[in-house]
Design a protein around this nucleic acid. Structure first.
Lengths: 115, 115
DNA sequence: CGGGATCCAATCCGATACTG
DNA sequence: CAGTATCGGATTGGATCCCG
């Protein structure tokens, strides 16, 4: 954070946000991080409220950014598997820290609203 | 991250995202973290492209979430100062980690696109 | 000086239907 | 099974004008 005038801080933070912002991206990443490789249909079952369109779109963006890998099997019926890349795993620390801060923040706001 | 079935991970991460997502929130937080207390007009000068409406809106949200403090002086002309709360400072680690990951990610994508 | 109110454009997201 | 295409509502962000 030594270089605020050149705005590398801001740009760095926003580059990270681009990856993890999206209505379904955090939970997609968490499922792949914890559950390993999964098929499209499995993911859809794990995210009961997502539409196919959104699932496809978010997976495509994460793939484009090298965070997940998409593997297509030339079979009938089609089979497509998604997994976290090694590079994608480097996001784990951020998600972990956000999770911890977020949980304590939810408690903080609960207290505030009960006053 | 032990408890994925109950989705506390997801909720925690999304609670954090609610705070730092917003076109101008990260840079507002960085300026207040590094530069200390600042007046509305100073912030507007530091963020040359922001509109008054957006600056006001983002500051109000951060205030509502106890991340920043708004102090109004009963003077003419009006004077309003904004500062990070002690609680808001607890976000520093997340922003720092996102900055570091983001900078290396920008390098990663630059390499990818030059191939 | 530090806003509030209003209008408008762009983007995001969901629902639904169709397909190799 | 794993998508694509299309429509429309909701949300987000910008431009402009007004106010104590």
């Amino acid at each position: 954070m030594e270089n605020i005038k050149s705005e590398t801080c801001r740009n760095g933070v926003e580059a990270s946000l681009e990856i993890i912002v999206g209505k379904w991206k955090p939970i997609i990443l968490l499922h792949l991080l914890h559950g390993g490789t999964q098929r499209f249909g499995e993911m859809k079952r794990l995210l009961p409220n997502i539409t196919q369109k959104m699932l496809t779109a978010q997976l495509r963006e994460l793939e484009e950014q090298d965070i997940i890998e998409r593997k297509v099997y030339a079979e009938v019926p089609p089979k497509v598997e998604y997994s976290i890349t090694e590079y994608g795993r480097s996001l784990y620390g951020i998600l972990q820290q956000m999770h911890e801060w977020g949980v304590s923040h939810m408690e903080h706001m609960a207290k505030k609203n009960s006053r």
